[in-house]
Nucleic acid binder design. Structure first.
Lengths: 152, 152
DNA sequence: CCTGTTATCGCAACACGTTGCAGGAGCACC
DNA sequence: GGTGCTCCTGCAACGTGTTGCGATAACAGG
């Protein structure tokens, strides 16, 4: 649709071919759907939206394409508090996620905030945390303030 | 078997009954198996070990019992880097986990280390992280030092 | 020990991914 | 526009959990 957004993905086809990989209608569809997201989507949602446009979409093709795109750096995935795969489109900066177990809200941790997290781990354990794959579960300020756990 | 360890679980039966819940052979078996672990076990492993002792064990019973035990505070669960459920038995202190994506090793983050992580988040976002549910993926010191990613 | 209540069990079906395989399609080269 | 290599697709089966439902069994009370 919007020419600007499409250009973001314009390089994908050539990058695939340059790697000896192929540009297929299925991959085009998946990219179209990813392009139309707000930057976050679960695997199941993505499959569902592709099927809405093409009934013949199969999950294995979608998930395998996601693997390829992640290998090229176009997307990243992490796991929600419930353990489900969540894909992050075009992560301009590596960022982690905070997920509230009461209201289900999600906040992004930018690079600066993330550094505050991973630096102590690096210093203590020599362990380099993979921020892009990180989802921290807990309770947000609003939910913590309300006694029952109901919020939003 | 060992009397000391069994005593750790001795209260479970009474706690269940006090809550209007029931003590069944299936739950006893699951507790026996949990007791024999080193404190960490995945859902699939637990089902498998129960089936090794009783072929009639069904997954739904195991997972539902795990929910009950978690509600009583006897176990906690988090998700591995691959998104699989991992159960932590009798967490005397809340602790998080570091998981190396190269060698698969897991390290525990004790309460002090965890505090270094969650305090900045609390201060910045008012978000109370759930340390017991946290697994951070990344690369350990040994694997980071080896160029290829092979280690251990 | 009997009885009634109801938590729990086992089954079957579903949800979310992953993997092996054989045939079809993309692409580079001529 | 052919040709051939091989990546990719779609299918089917599997792995890991989760959920609805009818039947069973635990347990409190008489």
């Amino acid at each position: 649709m919007t020419a600007e957004m499409s250009q973001v993905w314009a390089g994908v086809r050539d990058r695939l071919r340059a790697s000896g990989l192929r540009w297929t209608p299925q991959r085009q569809l998946i990219l179209d759907v990813l392009e139309a997201t707000d930057g976050h989507i679960t695997g199941a949602e993505l499959v569902e939206r592709c099927r809405a446009r093409d009934r013949d979409t199969t999950p294995s093709t979608v998930y395998r394409t996601l693997d390829v795109l992640e290998g090229l750096g176009y997307i990243r995935h992490s796991h929600s508090a419930a353990g489900r795969a969540e894909f992050h489109v075009l992560p301009e900066v590596e960022h982690g996620h905070l997920e509230c177990r009461s209201c289900g809200g999600v906040w992004e941790l930018d690079a600066d905030d993330a550094a505050k997290l991973i630096d102590p781990i690096q210093a203590t354990f020599g362990f380099t945390a993979d921020v892009g794959h990180l989802t921290i579960s807990g309770r947000c300020a609003s939910c913590a303030a309300s006694p029952s756990g109901e919020e939003t």
